[in-house]
């Protein structure tokens, strides 16, 4: 009967999903000679994304002119100007200009990483999986943000940067440990937020695709389009705020 056939097929697919849950990990392609480092699907996808961004940037800036001479330049100018106009009211015009290369790179890389998990077959094909669904990748991004925040803070304000941890001075014994812990909790939460969202979204799509390949997965896929964008946005937004706080003068 129909239900029996459906449930038998479902059991087969679902146990496959269950096994993937048990051994969810990147697919190892080869090891780098000498160092013995593993190159996995995570790396290859990131290389692919970097290649796309590099080629797009190269094509767009090949014939630079004061007035855009190519469609590529016009498009890139819209993107760069849009990002700057977005950050300016939040962290100030000067900061927005100074940090734009860093923030823009983060945003574009995370956005493309999140969307790479939405391509048909992502997660099933070896060599294609959203890099941001791996905690190692997002932790790396957050570590870069952590270092950047300390760097711009010390560079702009010298040792005065660390004053925010001992202000007011009579509460310093209490505030210093809290301040230090908070500095480390920030990148921790930043990386976890991104990976838990993308990993969770990916598994929901995977499970619903296994349950019914028709219609039903449209809802989470559509939501993933929104989620991927907003998570990239939130990561960059928080980075911008951390950077702006680091360079702000005390008042």
């Amino acid at each position: 009967m129909f239900p029996a056939a459906v449930s038998a097929g479902m059991a087969a697919i679902a146990s496959e999903v269950g096994e993937e849950a048990a051994s969810h990990g990147p697919h190892v392609f080869f090891r780098l000679p000498f160092l013995g480092l593993e190159v996995t699907s995570i790396e290859t996808t990131m290389w692919g994304i970097m290649l796309i961004v590099l080629v797009a940037a190269w094509l767009g800036t090949r014939t630079l002119g004061r007035v855009p001479r190519s469609r590529g330049q016009a498009l890139l100018e819209v993107a760069v100007d849009g990002l700057r106009a977005f950050f300016a009211p939040i962290i100030g015009e000067e900061n927005a200009r100074a940090f734009l290369p860093f923030l823009g790179s983060l945003f574009i890389f995370i956005l493309l990483s999140n969307y790479s998990g939405l391509l048909p077959g992502a997660g099933h094909l070896p060599g294609l999986a959203a890099p941001t669904s791996n905690w190692g990748v997002t932790a790396g991004l957050a570590a870069v943000v952590f270092v950047a925040v300390q760097y711009v803070g010390v560079k702009k304000r010298g040792l005065a940067y660390f004053k925010h941890m001992v202000n007011p001075w009579y509460l310093a014994p209490l505030l210093l440990p809290l301040g230090v812990v908070e500095e480390f909790v920030r990148p921790f939460a930043l990386s976890l937020r991104l990976v838990a969202n993308i990993f969770g979204g990916e598994t929901v799509v995977l499970a619903l695709l296994a349950a019914t390949p028709w219609f039903l997965p449209i809802v989470p896929l559509g939501l993933e389009l929104i989620f991927g964008f907003i998570q990239a946005f939130i990561f960059t937004f928080l980075t911008a705020i951390y950077l702006a706080t680091a360079v702000a003068e005390e008042h």
């Binding site: 479902m10 059991a11 697919i13 679902a14 146990s15 496959e16 999903v17 269950g18 096994e19 849950a21 598994t203 929901v204 499970a207 619903l208 296994a210 349950a211 039903l216 809802v219 989470p220 559509g222 939501l223």
Partner: peptide
């Protein structure tokens, strides 16, 4: 409404995954 609908779909998906093994 789409967001609220998806919440129930998440429960649907997890039941499906768990039922498999």
């Amino acid at each position: 409404l789409v967001f609220m609908e998806a919440l129930t779909l998440f429960v649907f998906a997890i039941i499906f995954v768990l039922a498999g093994n």
